[in-house]
Every structure is written in C-alpha cells, then in structure tokens.
Write a protein that binds this DNA or RNA. Structure first.
Lengths: 177, 177
DNA sequence: ATCTTATGAATGAACG
DNA sequence: CGTTCATTCATAAGAT
C-alpha cells in the first residue's frame, strides 16, 4: 500500500489508454505535496489552477484534481477512523463506533408530517391548473421539510414492490404534472 | 479492499437494505428523462407525484426525488463549468476513445450539447409528452456512466518524463495558492 | 490467470 | 445552490 512510488510515469508518453486518468508520478507528487502542506479542500479556482499547472506533466482535467483531493482526504479520514477502532490502545473505554445507520435523522426528525400547507388556491380556470402558486415561493431547503424522513427501519416486512420488473406499459406518461 | 462486486441496479427486489436509496434503472431513466425534458426544479407537489409514480419500480421516498434533482442539476452545472475551463474550444461533440469491451459504458454524451440545454422554461407541466414512442430510448442503460471526455492524445508536446524530469520553464510555483 | 490492493469515478445525502 | 462527506462501484496494478 502506501504511495510507494511505483513506476506509473506514462501519462504523457504514448498510447495512454484513455479509460481513466492515470496520474504521472510528478502529478501525484505535487498533489501529495499540496495535501501535506495543508491544502485538503481546494476551492474550485484552486482546482483549476492546479489542474492547469499539472497539465504540463500529462493529460489531466480539473475533475481529476477534484476527485483526487476528495478521495485522498476521505481515505485519510477513513484510515484514521479505522486505526482508531482497530487499535483500542486505550483500555479505559469501549467504543461502538459504527452503527452503520447513523446517517439518518439528523434534522429530519423535527418535522411533523402535518404541514403548513398554507393554502391550496383553486384557481381552476381553463385547463386545470396543476401548479399551486405557493410552491413557487418555496425555497429548496424548505421543500425538504415536507419530505420528512422516516426510514422505516426496514425490512422485515414492508415493501411489497416485489421484483415485478416486467411491467408492460410504462405508463409513466407523467402528464400528471 | 472490499470484494470487487459487480452487481448494480438491483431492482426493488431483494433485501433492500435501508441504508440509502438505491434507484433502479427504471427510476433513473424516468428521472433523467424528466430532467432532460426541462424539469430541473420540481415543486413539492411534483416531487411527491413523481415519487409516487416511481414507487412502482421500487422503494423510494420524496426526499430521494428531491435530492436527485438537486444533485443532478448541481452536477450538470459543475460539469459544464469545468468543461468551460478544461476545453476552451467548445466543440459540439466529443468522441470516445473507450475501447470496446469492459462493462458497457455506453455513454451517450449527456452534457455535450451545452449550447442548447440552457435554461428552458422551468415549468414543464400539463400534458407533456415525455415518452415519444421512438425517442432516443436507450433500451437499457446500465447506469449513467457518462462523463465522456475526449481523449486527447496529448500529442502536442509530449512530456517525456525521464528519470530526472525537472520542469524547465513552467515550474510549479505552488505559491499561487 | 486469479486474488488483492490501491485508487479513479460516481452519487446519495447533507451542510452552510 | 455550491460544496462537502460517506459509501460504493469499477478498474489498473501487484502479488501469488
């Protein structure tokens, strides 16, 4: 493992198979260097600058830089997390680090399913107006409130939407909108 | 680290783990079609209706639809933004160097036509015929695996990264950060 | 060739 | 909305 420098210098060379970005050693070095020096989350502008600079060493795009930092940081983090768990040197306490389902219900829990649906104007003129004006005033973040999470802890029973995939007529005409 | 699995797009069938929403291919297709047809920011009602319809294909909640549109829109822009800087010469299309074989990857460029996708009338409601019998119906798409970047053979200047490649002129002055 | 590891890429979820 | 995080998928490179 590690970034044990291996020979990957082929970025600028010849037939680089263009499946996915394959950074050159120089590119990796610079990126790693930047990371080590404290740049963990470059801004968009920085990403573009870095990408631009690194393009000297070989084919690269800003999204590659973006992903690189994303991944590097995440893996650093996860590595650290793993060590923390795998190496409980501190005998004092235990840690049940992962519940594997901690993701939910952070602030979703605050909403009641009852809504502040202000009012549903029945402006039915001409052709059915299906677009309540009030929804236009909603900010996106407020919309989220409507969708109160309630991840039914699943499973054992609850879905009945079986593997019924054949579904002949895709009647999702969506004219319902 | 993990095992290299290859299963994707498991429909609403099996033991759907309630970790996070895993859209079926049908769901993704419909959502994508809606988006491409101009619905970029669905209202609360639309979200609920879409969710309701899509629930036929598998477990789904309104918030999933909400997030899907948020993410898709944001990433569409992000990509567009990036293309702008990475490829100043806006060409109408790009080509793929993707060799044959390997998992599908039939990326029909979704973002390539950026000179026409710009802000359509946001309200695509009422009877919108979304599924023309013979539209560009990609019969089956594994997963949207686009992001086709053109593989410039970086022919211009090949940086032969020799053993001691010290960038002459263009030195990485990382002080630009 | 097959398994394993490292890492590029994608995306659902969520934050500020 | 633009960003960031967590997880997962996919794949190139090593190891066996």
């Amino acid at each position: 493992m590690e970034e044990g420098m291996s020979v990957r210098a082929r970025g600028g060379g010849g037939g680089t198979k263009c499946g996915r970005w394959n950074p050159t050693t120089e590119q990796v070095k610079v990126l790693t260097d930047l990371f080590r020096s404290g740049l963990h989350t470059p801004s968009t502008d920085e990403i573009q600058k870095i990408s631009s600079q690194l393009s000297f060493y070989g084919k690269i795009e800003s999204k590659n830089v973006f992903y690189w930092f994303q991944n590097h940081k995440a893996r650093e983090r996860q590595k650290r997390r793993r060590i923390f768990v795998d190496e409980p040197k501190a005998e004092g306490f235990h840690f049940s680090c992962q519940d594997n389902n901690i993701t939910s219900t952070k602030h979703f829990s605050e909403i009641s399913n009852f809504n502040q649906v202000v009012e549903q104007p029945e402006k039915v003129k001409e052709t059915l107006q299906l677009f309540p004006p009030n929804s236009l005033n909603e900010s996106e973040s407020e919309k989220l409130r409507f969708f109160a999470e309630d991840c039914k802890e699943n499973s054992a029973f609850s879905y009945n939407i079986g593997p019924e995939k054949d579904h002949p007529t895709l009647d999702l005409r969506l004219s319902f909108l």
